[in-house]
Design a protein around this nucleic acid. Structure first.
Lengths: 333, 333
DNA sequence: TGTGCAGGCTCAACCGATTGATCTTGAGGA
DNA sequence: TCCTCAAGATCAATCGGTTGAGCCTGCACA
């Protein structure tokens, strides 16, 4: 294993020019006027030595890290995988990489401690955890941040999806099939996405001239969904359809329906927010509303890259939202 | 939003000491002898100004980035989520953060280009993509690397799990239930994990005095599993049980069984490698073999942190491997 | 009174790239 | 012949921490 550690100076020596020239050639400095043959010599030296600029030195001098942070609750939730993909691609487009951190580690505070000063050019906060103390700390550290799919209480710094519309699509689908008693298996209390989806459900029910059905809150996990669904089914007059706020909960909810000896969609129709590959392989294949999650990650990075420090952002991302009808929804009996 | 940019010099000025003292206090340099009251003054100044060391400057001087890379095929596969969690926790324990990259972006080559020189102290390569060209490049860049759950062809630099044992456990479970025609829905051809799991299956069959059943290769995806399972079922004498090399494939395989009008476990028993939360919520709940995936990530980081550059590692991780019996396995009819 | 020594700090070089300022050379014009 | 100017390249300060070497001061001991 050869240990190289090639620096600007090495390249400069080989090309017989000053380090400054090499730097300017490497960075394509438009202010540089140089003879073509000199440029060739430099590029040849770069190639021959396999030179790559030292990230730390560059960051130190330019005060740009070429790195974005992405903090999320849990890698195990495939919904975040989509967001990561979009963010990663956008970052790569800007010549940057992504550092990811999750709440399953030391939490946002611990994560920021590990990062230290100036390691990232901006931070994306996906999902939960909006502790304003930490936000204040981010501001003190001069790190631009944006919340993804979650509004910040104080400052306008977020990109969200049109969850209300997603909910409407889902409910309208159920109404169109003839359902009238449509329950809502909502997200965790206080979660912003949960609120927006609930609002959409309520609005759509009203528009259809239907009374609000029962609503139960649950974590965005299979276990949470299972418990909540059991509660809904235990009611004296159970719903004929359920609008589930998240596909992870829906997976658990389906299990509860089976446990209760009922059939989807014969006894209960089910539609959930967020489309995953997995949805088509569930039993029965789950009807979902596809949301532009990758787009959300992409846009977040894009904004971090272009935003001025004190600008506020309050964007409802205008991506395709569509109902993917599968076999978990059917007319009521 | 206040923009601070507090440096060592600011702290030193406030505490009326030299920058060197502040640096040594902050880093708990044992070689420093200092009066307690001075130390107090320094710490007070640090706290008052909210000083945090600049990561770039520190990296530049010490040639340590306090950052590890983790490259994986796809964030959407929950198996990698487990590995990430373990790696993240271990990195945090070493005071480091994790940069993740995936093949869905620009690939390993592009990822390394983005990282540049000296940004990471080591790289974990999870899953596929073992192009030796890139490995050579890593060596040139003096980046220690380790493959996770995949052996490298040339150099001994890997940590793997005991996939052969996992396969044995699965097959023995099926044999114990009375199955004799046990098929294998293997991983992608050439994948190292696939080979090891196949070997385990073959060995366990032999030990049980059974002839090898049919074997079909598939991607570690639901779609791959579905296609492969369909092929197995189309055989003149279909198996009564299937050992599936990966839980993602199993999800697709289950769907194929249902499509064929058959029942799990009445007509076909199924057991898959890797336990996920999700497995208990499938229909029926899937019997799996739990592997210490988080442990794998943890150990990878640990080795990166302690390994000397040219050491070789060839470790079979000794973590708990256990069969989680659920309802997808039963005696044959 | 001088010497030795250690405790407690300070000095300053260095890591590697960037970038505004400056120098050199040769051509063209007066 | 002298001056101007621009192309083409170099100089050197700078980013913020780290760290080995060195500098004071005061005390102990002879």
């Amino acid at each position: 294993m050869k240990r190289a550690r090639v620096t600007l100076a090495d390249v400069a020596a080989l090309a017989k020019v000053d380090r400054a020239v090499v730097s300017r050639v490497v960075n394509n400095d438009p202010a540089l006027s140089i003879r073509p043959e000199t440029r060739e010599r430099v590029l040849a030296a770069v190639a021959q030595l396999g030179y790559r600029p030292n990230a730390a030195a560059r960051s130190l001098r330019t005060a740009r890290a070429h790195m974005f942070g992405l903090f999320l609750p849990d890698f195990a939730n495939p919904v975040y995988a989509e967001i990561i993909k979009g963010a990663e691609a956008a970052a790569a487009g800007l010549g940057c990489v992504l550092v990811t951190g999750s709440s399953t580690g030391a939490g946002l505070g611990g994560y920021m401690d590990l990062l230290g000063q100036g390691r990232i050019d901006g931070l994306l906060l996906a999902g939960a955890e909006g502790e304003s103390e930490l936000i204040a700390q981010l501001d003190r550290m001069a790190v631009p941040w944006i919340m993804l799919n979650r509004r910040s209480p104080a400052v306008k710094r977020y990109v969200i999806l049109d969850d209300e519309r997603a909910a409407r699509l889902a409910v309208e689908h159920l109404v169109g099939l003839g359902h009238r008693r449509i329950a809502h298996l909502a997200g965790p209390e206080g979660a912003d996405t949960a609120l927006r989806r609930s609002a959409g459900w309520r609005a759509a029910m009203r528009d259809a001239g239907l009374p609000d059905g029962p609503i139960v809150a649950a974590d965005y996990t299979p276990a949470g969904g299972a418990a909540a669904m059991a509660a809904l089914l235990a009611a004296p007059e159970p719903p004929t359809a359920v609008f589930v706020a998240n596909v992870a909960s829906a997976i658990g909810a389906m299990e509860s329906v089976r446990e209760a000896g009922l059939d989807i969609p014969r006894d209960v129709s089910m539609v959930a927010v967020h489309d995953l590959d997995l949805a088509s392989y569930l039993a029965p294949p789950l009807t979902t509303v596809r949301m532009p999650l990758a787009e959300l990650g992409r846009r977040g990075v894009e904004l971090l890259g272009s935003l001025k420090p004190d600008d506020s952002v309050a964007e409802v991302l205008d991506g395709p939202i569509e109902l993917i009808a599968r076999r978990s929804t059917a007319p009521p009996r």
